[in-house]
Amino acid sequence: MGAYRADDDYDYLFKVVLIGDSGVGKSNLLSRFTRNEFSLESKSTIGVEFATRSIRVDDKIVKAQIWDTAGQERYRAITSAYYRGAVGALLVYDVTRHVTFENVERWLKELRDHTDANNVIMLVGNKADLRHLRAVATEDAKGFAERESTFFMETSALESMNVENAFTEVLAQIYRVVSRKVLDVGDDSTYFPKGQTINVGSRDDVSAVKKAGCCSS
């Protein structure tokens, strides 16, 4: 598939985090986007999981480094390290469980406490395929997203609905912020094209990718 590119062939590297309550489908959104896989019985995520995929935005190749974190409250203190360097986030709730939507506000606060104000955030109502079980109205979520100036989309990792759109939209928005920043400011340390790159872990991460490749030896 043309969309799945070699690991070390990219112009930009963006770190994106997936957050939201336990059981809303974060891991399945990630596996749908990066491997086109879905599992009804996936295990709960403990700590963090990590996957990458590159997509094309305009004429540039953007590599997304996506971090999937544990949803349970207990793990939040630990996961704070995972926010470091993130430039985008998908804040996921489950449209069939209203409590997961109520908790979105807390997640948003935590996200804003840990990341740059320019962070691109998309509110994602997952499990939209379960129409008969819907507990959160689309309008309510849309309203919330408008008030909080985040993007909004409803998805179904199971039916593969909007998953691609949600991720690519976030990545494209980050790209837009970055290219605008490079034009406007020029020396902002958070957003840089490759070579100097954004602070995902460290600058070495990126140059190291170019040098070593993956598991080649």
């Binding site: 990590f50 480094q65 993956c214």
Partner: peptide, 17 residues
């Protein structure tokens, strides 16, 4: 260790996870 020493941030994490 050999694979880790040859790896970068991404490949190391993928291997260890």
């Amino acid at each position: 260790r050999r694979r880790l020493l040859a790896g970068d941030f991404t490949s190391i994490l993928k291997l260890l996870q």
